[in-house]
Design a protein around this nucleic acid. Structure first.
Lengths: 205, 205
DNA sequence: AAGTTAGTGTAAACGCCGTTTACACTGGAC
DNA sequence: GTCCAGTGTAAACGGCGTTTACACTAACTT
């Protein structure tokens, strides 16, 4: 299988300016992360993919981490969209929360590159408020659902965090590979759906 | 606060040989990971900390990742020990599983450096069977408990994976910082204990 | 139409990194 | 006392992130 799903737009041969280098760099970065992991990605190689010198990215990003941060934000936004869409497809608060959890798992399967940038690129998110904000937005989707579930915001927070942690934990373990053989095939999403259902059937405290 | 909890043993001034460079390198690596994150750690700096030239580590590890892999294995072993010890302190299968989950969370709090090396150093674990084996051993502790819980190994696996995912997810989110403010203080371990308890009270299927 | 300028690219350099190679020291086995 | 396996050093390599000084060009001004 070729990995060239999305060809990175190169600078056209004769012209001096690229046209949309910022976008090309983000695409190149995602592709490199997909192919060689978040540690295998280098700014220089992304520049080469975009057909541009190694200094050019610095006209668009203050440094490498800023590029990763922008990708992470984009990823969180995409996640928010997909979670929200999934919730819309069903009715009932409990069903919506379950749909969100399943959508999270689906997001990790469909976009491992974004997932890797968000969680495994070693980004110091406290340095990038936009990343934190986008993460809060994603989490907020499910937190608001939980609010309709619980008597107090504190309980809703606990409920939301528990659900989030459960699906995030499964996604992380899957991605990580350390327990790959344990999760091989057997552990599909159904048990998690069942667990979520079970959990959401129980009153909290 | 000084970060020099454990001084790294340096090569003594006059002598040519270090004595226990392998151990010193692992200590130095853990310290650097603690102080600057898994991406801030460099083999060269670890060598300097140990008072040794940058080529010396290659007498003890084939490459940088092999050093990280050995630390990851050590971390998994330590985790296994602590989980096992926690289970011994209580009686009853359910109580033991809960104790394991709590011990996992405590491990992440007490040893964020090991946790970071295991999960956030970008190690390709499939290249290091020892790491995979140590991870399986840790997981095996709770899987065996689950076996006493369920009718079939498949159900036990699902049960164990669910518990593991839950505590691992919470630990990851805590460590990650992306949702730091959401988890600030409010989300201590008790809700997770409650969730585990609730989950383990429910028959599976 | 010509001149100016802000934006965006290049080339070359810096120091740090991981890794390799050829060499040096040394403690213990014989 | 000699040898030698083990362990350290020094110097070099290419790749990386980043900075600096310079070059090109599209668009705006007049």
């Amino acid at each position: 299988m070729t990995t060239r799903k999305t060809p990175i737009r190169q600078k056209s041969a004769g012209s001096y300016h690229h046209g949309d280098l910022k976008t090309s760099l983000k695409e190149a970065a995602l592709r490199l992360v997909r192919e060689k992991g978040p540690r295998g990605f280098s700014l220089n190689e992304a520049s080469r993919l975009a057909g541009v010198s190694v200094g050019a990215p610095y006209r668009h990003f203050p440094d490498k981490d800023a590029l990763l941060a922008e990708i992470a934000s984009n990823g969180n936004e995409l996640l928010t969209v997909e979670i929200t869409a999934a919730a819309k497809l069903v009715s009932g608060v409990k069903e919506k929360m379950i749909a969100c959890g399943m959508a999270y798992l689906e997001f990790c399967r469909a976009h491992p590159d974004y997932f890797a940038v968000i969680f495994h690129a070693g980004l110091d998110k406290s340095k990038y408020p936009a990343v934190e904000q986008s993460a809060r937005n994603a989490f907020g989707t499910i937190f608001e659902l939980a609010l309709a579930f619980e008597r107090t915001p504190e309980l809703a927070m606990q409920r939301a965090v528990s659900c989030w942690a459960l699906v995030h934990g499964l996604a992380s373990l899957r991605m990580d590979g350390g327990l790959a053989m344990m999760l091989q095939g057997k552990t599909r999403d159904e048990p998690i759906r069942y667990l979520l259902e079970l959990f959401l059937d129980q009153p909290y405290e």
